[in-house]
């Protein structure tokens, strides 16, 4: 019999995955560096955020690169934390950074906006995860 903690850990997985992308973007905004698997992290986030809208993706066994859309609790948290337009904004801004389709200043501004939105998801997920005293 699985426990409630299993459900709670889905929120933690979401927070950790949002954090992964935030950390990569912080270095980019601060130093202009694309460290390690920067592009892949961004692409994984884009894929996972877009997956919510694709029915076929919901049932795909291999789709879950990041935990924005693996479980209902995660989808609902993203849904609550961000308006649909904000979700689209993250995807758009991450793609601008990933494809380098603007000058560096614009990319860094977009990255900073994406950090703010992803941080909202992270905070909300941590809120649901933590036991309240």
């Amino acid at each position: 019999m699985s426990s409630e903690s299993e459900v709670r850990s889905r929120y933690l997985a979401l927070a950790l995955d949002a954090r992964k992308v935030i950390d990569a973007l912080i270095v980019f905004v601060d130093k202009g560096e694309r460290q390690g698997d920067f592009d892949q992290s961004l692409q994984d986030a884009v894929t996972s955020l877009q997956a919510v809208k694709e029915k076929k993706e919901i049932f795909s066994p291999s789709r879950n690169l990041l935990a924005f859309s693996e479980y209902y609790e995660q989808v609902r948290t993203v849904d609550e934390a961000l308006k649909p337009t904000e979700r689209e904004q993250i995807v758009e801004k991450l793609l601008t950074v990933k494809t380098q389709s603007a000058d560096l200043k614009k990319q860094q501004d977009d990255a900073f906006e994406a950090i703010k939105l992803l941080s909202t998801i992270e905070s909300r997920a941590l809120y649901y995860y933590r036991p309240q005293p």
Partner: peptide, 27 residues
């Protein structure tokens, strides 16, 4: 820590995510 002050808050939050991970282990 990052040099840009506007990133401070988002860098700091990493500590909270790590702390939450340890909540899980603490249990």
């Amino acid at each position: 820590k990052p040099n840009e002050p506007r990133l401070y808050q988002y860098y700091r939050q990493r500590l909270e995510t790590i702390r939450s991970g340890w909540f899980e282990i603490h249990l």
